[in-house]
């Protein structure tokens, strides 16, 4: 399967004198985390299917610096940002798509002030556009009538106001979109943001991902849809904690579409 993926690098395209339509910023989770790598591949399959001319930075990509900045290490963040911007500007990149809302937010909002000006879109927005432009078509078959609840990633929703693109895609699958008690601008965090992903939580009554998973389970979903690799991990852990992993899948929007397309 893997060998079928076409994943050109910027370096290769640049050497061939070509410029892709868009840079796919894979991100650290998408590159290294076993669960998130599946999301990355699902997204690439869709890009391949739609004949999108894209490229990745590959080994030239480095952490955007988001977790460092949120942890308070502005210095490390800016070092990362300036290095990444140098690479991207050298390639003349104008448009970036990423499946990670944290990378998305940082690239979109915090890089311009340091000299990195790109049109940055989240993969759910990008997929929505592909669909609207007729570059991919969706037949609802696989997910027809399935109850799917969508967990808003904080850095996609509240932080950047993207609420509808992922929902529109779920609806296009002919699935039944069910909303949690807290959704959209009042969505509850999965517990991973602000560098929490990389540390133990402070003392409390409950872990945040358990609270959020309980809200999701209240909707009696068959699938919990996520649009962030970190939310995906937190929700997957939450579902496991509730011993529901046999009945309820946690899937990224890109995976839903790739599965629907039988890619």
């Amino acid at each position: 399967m893997g060998s079928e993926l076409k994943v050109p690098t910027m370096a290769a395209l640049f050497a061939a004198g070509k410029q892709p339509e868009v840079l796919f910023w894979v991100g650290c989770a998408g590159s290294f985390d076993d669960r998130a790598k599946k999301i990355t591949k699902a997204f690439v399959k869709i890009l391949n299917k739609a004949n999108v001319s894209f490229a990745v930075l590959g080994t030239e990509e480095s952490c955007t610096g988001d977790p460092a900045k949120r942890a308070g290490n502005e210095f490390l963040f800016q070092m990362q940002a300036v290095t990444n911007i140098e690479v991207m500007n050298a390639y003349g990149i104008t448009k970036v798509v990423t499946a990670c809302p944290h990378c998305f937010n940082t690239l979109k909002n915090e890089y311009p002030g340091l000299g990195g000006n790109y049109e940055v879109v989240h993969h759910t927005e990008f997929l929505k556009k592909l669909l609207d432009d007729g570059r991919i078509t969706l037949e609802g078959g696989t997910f027809k009538g399935k109850r799917i609840t969508f967990h808003d990633p904080c850095y996609l929703g509240r932080a950047n106001g993207v609420y509808e693109a992922p929902r529109d895609l779920i609806k296009k699958l002919d699935a039944e979109l069910v909303e949690m008690k807290n959704c959209k601008s009042r969505g509850l965090c999965c517990g991973a943001g602000g560098a929490q992903m990389f540390k133990e939580p402070e003392k409390g009554d409950k872990d945040i991902n358990i609270e959020r998973t309980e809200q999701a389970l209240d909707t009696q979903p068959e699938i919990i849809a996520a649009a962030c690799p970190f939310c995906n991990t937190m929700m997957t852990d939450g579902v496991k904690n509730k011993e529901k992993e046999k009945d309820i899948k946690v899937m990224d929007i890109a995976e839903l579409i790739a599965t629907a397309e039988d890619l």
Binding site: S31, F32, E61
Partner: peptide, 25 residues
Amino acid sequence: MMGNIENNGAPWPFNQMDRLNWKDE
């Protein structure tokens, strides 16, 4: 986490040179 970012460009201890390995897995 910050040490990892500083040393290998990711919050986890993975080598930056392995960033594209997912493609062939």
